[in-house]
C-alpha cells in the first residue's frame, strides 16, 4: 500500500465508523500500542473533519494480558491511557495488522479491566489472515493474503517517517 492507499483506507474506515454507529457520538477509539494509537488519532482527525465530531482517543497496551508471556515479557510495557470512563460506551479497537487475533483477545481482556463497554468493534489497516481465534474485524483497510512465513510491515509517518505497508517475503524481497 502506498501512502495514498493508507490515506484513502483511513478515510473510508472513518466514514464506515460513522455510518455503522449512527453518527458515532460517545465512541472511544482505542489504539493498540504503538502504531494502532497513531491510526486511532488519524481516524479521530478524519471524523472531526467529516462531521465536526471530536471523539476521545485512547491507547491500550495488551502486553500484560497476552497468552504468550514468555515472549511478551521480553519488551517493555507501555502505559494504557483511556478516557475517564468507558462504562456503557462503544469502543473501537484500532490496530495496524490483524493476524492470529491473539493481540485483540488480550486487548479485549485489558479493556474489561476499565469497565463494561456497550460494544467493542475492531478496525485494522491490514488483515493478513491466519486467524487462530474466532475474531473478525468490523473495518478493514485492506485484505492482504499472506503466507505464514511472510511479514507485513506497516510504516507510519509518526514513527517511521513515511506511510506504507510492505510485505516482506521470508527472503526479504520487498514488494509493494
Amino acid at each position: 500500500m502506498s501512502s495514498d492507499d493508507v490515506r484513502r483506507a483511513l478515510a473510508r474506515i472513518a466514514h464506515e465508523v460513522l455510518e455503522r454507529n449512527d453518527g458515532a457520538r460517545d465512541i472511544v477509539l482505542a489504539g493498540i500500542q504503538t502504531r494502532g494509537v497513531h491510526l486511532a488519532r488519524r481516524l479521530a482527525a478524519n471524523i472531526e473533519r467529516f462531521e465536526g465530531l471530536r471523539l476521545e482517543v485512547g491507547a491500550l497496551d495488551p502486553r500484560l494480558y497476552r497468552d504468550d508471556p514468555e515472549a511478551a515479557a521480553l519488551h517493555p510495557v507501555k502505559p494504557t491511557e483511556l478516557p475517564a470512563s468507558i462504562e456503557g460506551r462503544p469502543v473501537v479497537l484500532v490496530d495496524d495488522v490483524l493476524y492470529t487475533g491473539r493481540t485483540i483477545r488480550a486487548a479485549m481482556e485489558a479493556l474489561l479491566d476499565f469497565g463494561r463497554a456497550s460494544r467493542i468493534q475492531l478496525a485494522v489497516l491490514v488483515d493478513r489472515g491466519h486467524r487462530e481465534l474466532p475474531i473478525r474485524p468490523d473495518y478493514v483497510g485492506k485484505n492482504i493474503p499472506t503466507a505464514r512465513g511472510e511479514r507485513v510491515r506497516v510504516r507510519l509517518a509518526e514513527v517511521d517517517g513515511e506511510d506504507a505497508v510492505v510485505l516482506l517475503k521470508p527472503e526479504s524481497q520487498e514488494a509493494r
Binding site: R35, P76, T103
Partner: peptide
C-alpha cells in the same frame, strides 16, 4: 500488531 516480534520498541509519544 499480532506478532510481537514485529513490534517496535518506540514508545507511543
Amino acid at each position: 500488531m499480532d506478532d510481537l516480534r514485529m513490534e517496535s520498541r518506540s514508545a507511543g509519544l
